[in-house]
Design a protein around this nucleic acid. Structure first.
Length: 340
DNA sequence: CATCGATGTTGAG
DNA sequence: TCAACCTCGATGG
């Protein structure tokens, strides 16, 4: 279920609470017992998100590659940072220079009612303060849900847990992943080599060039190219539809026929939306909202997007009914009037 | 309580 | 092109 922003937030949890610590690795479910043995007891030394994939490195040079797929999730428990809207942790999670209005208005647990244009500076401080770890539960998937505080540590695994990562203070249980495997450094390089640029990995300007080149040489519709993880990493069905609307671009336009400047703006908008997603934990694609509309957008995903999941409803700009069609087995939404 | 659908990918046919 | 993967919140009766 998660698009790229979720995976970056999950990697940040590992950076904050697992990196630098020895980890007991097990497979309560049993399906990953052989892999767990190879990692058990080793210290985690890095947590890296690239697109929708996450790579955890251990001190003997082996990595754990995880892809959550459609409904995978990580359940964290213990002394963890559970603030749903906590800021990026810096380091490789940084590059948050393009914060949008929405991110600036979200701070800690509290919703700051917008309209206070002058509140920008004040919120900056709280946005960047990491909440104190506390003994609780946090499920991280596409969305994040905080559970009840735990009484005993570690809590027993619940359900089908593919892999459990346990330190003295925190535990992470992985369930329902599409991919969970131990990789050598060479294999990690191959996996990452198959992926298109991620705005939060490497130089974004370099990523822009790779993206532009990949799009402009293909006759494939831009609506499919945005979902192609070898063209650009991390975009899923929601961001795809929303990026196309924001660009007022017909999803069926062949990549090579999209003007270069439009392609560049697509990349820059992805950089922008991803940074909002990583900071807020939500796929807010109507940034800049104020007042009632902003409150509604935070409360309900149905009020959070321009076109995604809005088939038959009036376009928020022109009133035309939003269209839906299947494209490569996924639902594609767009406004036939605004996007052409 | 049963059923549906999902923000994803792979591999068979 | 489509089923399978294997989870769970939303929906309907």
């Amino acid at each position: 279920m998660p698009e790229g922003h979720s995976v970056h937030r999950i990697a940040r949890q590992f950076s904050l609470h697992f990196v630098g610590r020895p980890v007991a690795v097990s497979s309560p479910q049993g399906r990953f017992s052989a892999g767990a043995e190879k990692l058990d007891g080793h210290t985690m030394v890095d947590a890296l998100a690239v697109g929708k994939q996450m790579f955890l490195e251990f001190d003997h040079g082996l990595w754990l590659r995880v892809h959550l797929g459609l409904y995978g999730a990580w359940d964290f428990a213990g002394d963890i940072t559970a603030d749903a809207t906590v800021a990026s942790a810096g380091g490789r999670m940084g590059q948050t220079n393009q914060r949008g209005t929405v991110a600036e208005l979200v701070t800690g647990h509290d919703l700051v009612v917008p309209g206070a244009a002058g509140s920008r500076g004040e919120n900056e401080a709280s946005l960047h303060s990491i909440g104190a770890p506390r003994r609780t539960r946090l499920r991280m998937s596409e969305s994040e849900r905080q559970g009840e505080d735990i009484e005993e540590f570690p809590p027993p695994p619940i359900g089908q847990v593919r892999v459990r990562l346990l330190t003295t203070d925190a535990v992470a249980d992985l369930r329902g992943p599409t991919a969970c495997e131990v990789q050598t450094p060479d294999e990690v390089a191959v996996s990452i080599g198959k992926l298109g640029p991620d705005p939060l990995v490497g130089d974004p300007a370099e990523g822009e060039e790779r993206f532009v080149a990949a799009v402009r040489k293909k006759a494939t519709p831009i609506g499919l190219l945005l979902m192609d993880q070898s063209v650009v990493s991390g975009i899923g069905n929601v961001y795809r539809a929303e990026l196309l609307f924001r660009a007022r671009l017909d999803p069926y336009t062949p990549g090579k026929l999209v003007p270069e400047e439009v392609v560049r703006n697509l990349w820059r908008d992805w950089v922008h939306l991803l940074s909002i997603g990583v900071e807020t934990g939500q796929m807010m694609t109507m940034d800049g909202l104020e007042g009632e509309a902003y409150v509604a957008a935070l409360a309900s995903r149905d009020d959070r997007h321009w076109v995604y999941h809005r088939e038959g409803q009036p376009c928020r700009v022109c009133g035309t009914h939003i269209t839906m069609a299947m494209a490569a087995a996924r639902k594609l939404y767009w406004c036939p009037n605004c996007q052409r």
